[in-house]
Every structure is written in C-alpha cells, then in structure tokens.
Amino acid sequence: MYPSGEVFTVIPLGDIVPYLSTVNAVILGVLIAVLLLPILSRTDIYVEVDHRRPKIKAKIVTPREDRIKAALALTSTLASVGVVTTGDVFNFTLFLSLLGMSNMGLIGTTVGDDFALECAFHYGLMCLIASLPLFGGAALILASTGTLSLHELMKLPRGAGGWTLTYGKALLTAGVLGEAGVGPFYAVKVDSFRRIWGRYAFVIHLTTLLTFSRFMEILSLLP
C-alpha cells in the first residue's frame, strides 16, 4: 500500500516508473492552478515600500526580462511536476537539481538590482554544495538496498539496509533542505526570492514548498 493513497496510473519508462497517486494528484492540481495566476495577470510595474525609511521604489519590467522569467518559471514548474510524480530516487535528485537551477536563474536574471546577483550567486553555491548530499544519499541508498526504484524500496522490510540507509536518508534530507531552501533556510531565502521583482516570485515559493511535501512522502516510503 502506498502511503500517498491509491495509485491511479503508472507510466513505465524503463527502470524509471513515475506514478500518480491521490496525494500527488492533489499537489499537481495545486501547482498547475497556481501557475495559471501569473500567466493570466498582466501587471508589469512593481512597487516596494520601505516602512523604516519612508521610501517607495518602483520598477518597470522590460518585456525581455519578462520573457526569460516566464521560460524559467515554466521550467521550474515542469521540474516540480517531475519531482511530484517521479518513482525513482536518483531521478528525484535530478529533477530537484533542475528546480534549483531554474530558481537560481529566476533570481539572477533580475535587471538593475545588484543585490539580486549577490543572492543568486549564493543560491547557486547552495545548489552546488547540495549536490553532495543529494547524489551521495542516492548512492548510499543504492549500495545498501540494491535498487533505486521507490516501488521496490517500499516492499523491503522495516530495518533493511540498517545504518547505511538511515545515513542515506539523512544526507538526502540535508540535500533537499539546501536545494529547495525549506526548513531553516527558508527564512533566509525569502529575502532572495523577493528580489525577483515580478509576478513569478511566488512560483518559486510554491515549487520549493510542494517539493518538500513530496519528499515527506518519499521518506515514509523508504524502509
């Protein structure tokens, strides 16, 4: 029995078998519904109000900047669709890398804001460093159980893999925390995410948070 409820459909792509279950379908629906909001909104002037020193900052987003941000927001959403539906641990880490990469690009392509570049650089560093726990965790799970498929890992008895699997899970959790910027790092990253100055800002928030809720399901699948 899958912890995320009944499985509606599986898409067999060789060794990687993505699946759609009740919880995943709900997450997917929220994701696509919220993506429609920036697509439908047409605002392109953004105003920031600083309450401490009374100051109002306005910015007009050029069509050029808006276009690359739309492309990167779409990539980010597609990556989180993959994260939500994937059925393989290593595939999950790759989708997460794609997500981190496009989120970094969303911050870094802001024009006329040097602090945005600073934030994008440090977010990129986080993504680079997070690849050690992500890939290392997947490798340790593979070494200790002999499989990467979530469908097979679920069938293993509780306690299979021992300390190696527990350590792999810890590494994987650390990787997800860094790559998606959730948990303690969310408080810091919110400041970087604000630097997007545009309608795609909440795409980042949404994809990273839904990624973590999916990771909770994966953690409960692992023995």
Binding site: M101, M104, D114, L117, F121, G124
Partner: peptide, 17 residues
C-alpha cells in the same frame, strides 16, 4: 554534467556582479 552546468551559471553570475 549537473555540477558543470550549475558551476557555469553561478560563475557567470559572479562575473556579472
């Protein structure tokens, strides 16, 4: 490849900064 692509984008952001 993931490391390579991320390193390239991040270093270009550093250069632009």
């Amino acid at each position: 490849v993931v490391g390579l692509a991320e390193l390239m984008a991040t270093s270009e952001v550093l250069i632009a900064r």
